[in-house]
Amino acid sequence: MTRPFACVLVDDNEINRLTLEHLIELTPELTLAASLPGSLEALQYFRQGGKADLLLLDVEMPHLTGLELARLLPQPTPPVIIVTTHRDFAVDAFNLQVVDYLVKPVDLPRFTQAVTRVLDQQRTLATPPSPELPSEAPGSALFVKVGTKMLRLNFDEVLFIEAMSTYSILVTATQKHIVYMTLKALAERLPFAHFVRAHRSYIVNTQRIDAVEDHMLQLGKYEVPVGKSYQEDFYRHLRGL
């Protein structure tokens, strides 16, 4: 899209709306389509044909929570960024495949990061589809789709892969690469036996584990938890190395 993204803001707190309206105004890629004081007004807006390229959504609102609203929106739903004072709703929010989850008060750098994720996601969706892992390069390298380009990545350098909503983050010692595949889809395509699921949100390169303590894996400067339901299979794999 070359035009600004039409943004709809839903929050029952007027001060919060004014703050987010100002952040939208400071973001050239966005334009404010509607600023609404509650979920019922938002539901009416969309049911009457209102459009949005991006929905900024509070959670705790009278009559209908933001998460309940997200489930009721007509299809196709716009990308959703949750903006709330509480972290407790994060799991439910990402189960709805929201793009990002912001905790108030929101500053401009964090807001910009969230908007950039939406823009990157929408540009990728607008790009003609191609296989994310189309071919294997010699050795431990694969071509992966990162943004709009195919990147040859040496998987020996990948420490772990983290799930983030509908995409995955490949983490090396020096870089992070966003791949527009779910962790489950990526796990099904990886040909390397030493990449093992350790948690619902993590696949780790067992060859890059420096230490294991109290169900936490040390990989360089990072720590990754071993999920309770994954512990038996994961540790069996480690003992077999």
Results as ranks from 00 to 15, higher is better:
residue 21 E to K: 14
residue 201 S to D: 13
residue 85 T to C: 11
residue 97 Q to Y: 09
residue 11 D to T: 03
residue 168 S to P: 03
residue 145 K to W: 00
residue 183 L to M: 07
residue 129 P to I: 02
residue 12 D to R: 04
residue 65 T to F: 04
residue 142 L to N: 06
residue 152 R to N: 15
residue 79 P to E: 11
residue 35 S to H: 08
residue 146 V to H: 11
residue 203 I to C: 01
residue 234 F to W: 03
residue 43 L to S: 12
residue 40 L to I: 09
residue 58 D to I: 03
residue 92 D to I: 01
residue 12 D to C: 09
residue 100 D to E: 10
residue 13 N to S: 15
residue 40 L to E: 15
residue 150 M to F: 06
residue 134 P to I: 04
residue 17 R to F: 03
residue 142 L to P: 05
residue 171 V to S: 04
residue 96 L to C: 12
residue 29 E to H: 07
residue 117 R to Q: 15
residue 54 L to I: 12
residue 154 N to H: 06
residue 25 E to K: 12
residue 213 E to L: 13
residue 35 S to M: 08
residue 229 S to N: 14
residue 89 F to D: 10
residue 160 F to Y: 12
residue 177 H to V: 02
residue 36 L to V: 02
residue 2 T to G: 08
residue 145 K to F: 00
residue 113 Q to V: 06
residue 32 L to F: 05
residue 16 N to G: 15
residue 18 L to E: 15
residue 53 D to G: 15
residue 240 G to S: 15
residue 155 F to G: 01
residue 2 T to N: 12
residue 155 F to I: 00
residue 56 L to N: 04
residue 202 Y to S: 06
residue 38 G to A: 08
residue 93 A to E: 00
residue 60 E to C: 12
residue 224 V to P: 02
residue 101 Y to E: 10
residue 51 K to A: 14
residue 220 G to D: 10
residue 126 A to V: 02
residue 77 T to Y: 05
residue 49 G to A: 13
residue 123 R to I: 04
residue 197 R to N: 03
residue 2 T to D: 10
residue 97 Q to H: 14
residue 51 K to I: 10
residue 202 Y to F: 13
residue 220 G to P: 07
residue 83 V to A: 09
residue 99 V to L: 13
residue 46 F to Q: 09
residue 4 P to Q: 06
residue 106 V to Y: 07
residue 26 L to A: 14
residue 190 L to Q: 07
residue 216 M to Y: 09
residue 43 L to T: 06
residue 151 L to W: 03
residue 233 D to H: 14
residue 211 A to T: 08
residue 183 L to S: 07
residue 84 T to P: 07
residue 112 T to M: 07
residue 186 L to C: 08
residue 150 M to Y: 05
residue 39 S to P: 09
residue 20 L to K: 03
residue 91 V to A: 13
residue 160 F to Q: 01
residue 62 P to D: 11
residue 76 P to I: 03
residue 128 P to A: 12
residue 13 N to H: 14
residue 197 R to I: 01
residue 195 F to Q: 10
residue 198 A to M: 04
residue 169 I to H: 06
residue 219 L to H: 00
residue 126 A to N: 15
residue 147 G to N: 11
residue 163 A to L: 08
residue 61 M to D: 05
residue 27 T to A: 09
residue 29 E to N: 08
residue 201 S to V: 03
residue 171 V to N: 03
residue 191 P to S: 12
residue 189 R to N: 10
residue 226 V to K: 01
residue 23 L to V: 05
residue 140 S to V: 03
